[in-house]
């Protein structure tokens, strides 16, 4: 049974760096019993350094820690959700 997980990022811009809208990214996940997962963020090193996460320049992925593999599905950028099961970073 598939579940949608929606994420957003919190900007903490370094001095001199302009902010940006991080947007909401939804990935699908079909969780399986007795497995543990973790959420990772993929982005360019400069984004990590700037600590500003413009929409489209970061990607959430869910890793199955038991099997050590990425298990999340297609990413969709969407408007702010009403109901989220988010793991805000």
């Amino acid at each position: 049974m598939s579940t949608g997980l929606t994420f957003t990022m919190r900007n903490q811009p370094r001095a001199g760096v302009a902010g940006a809208v991080p947007g909401f990214a939804t990935v699908t996940l079909t969780p399986e019993p007795w497995r543990h997962y973790k959420v990772e963020v993929r982005s360019a090193p400069q984004t990590f350094s700037a600590r500003v996460w413009p929409e489209g320049q970061w990607t959430p992925v869910v890793r199955d820690r038991t099997a050590d593999r990425v298990v999340s599905g297609e990413l969709v950028w969407r408007p702010p959700p009403c109901s989220v099961a988010s793991a805000e970073r």
Binding site: M1, T3, L5, L29, P31, R35, H36, Y37, K38, V39, V62, A85, A87
Partner: peptide, 11 residues
């Protein structure tokens, strides 16, 4: 419940 289970699975 399912949401709680997913949260729990995500750590």
């Amino acid at each position: 419940q399912r949401e709680l289970a997913v949260r729990s699975a995500l750590g």
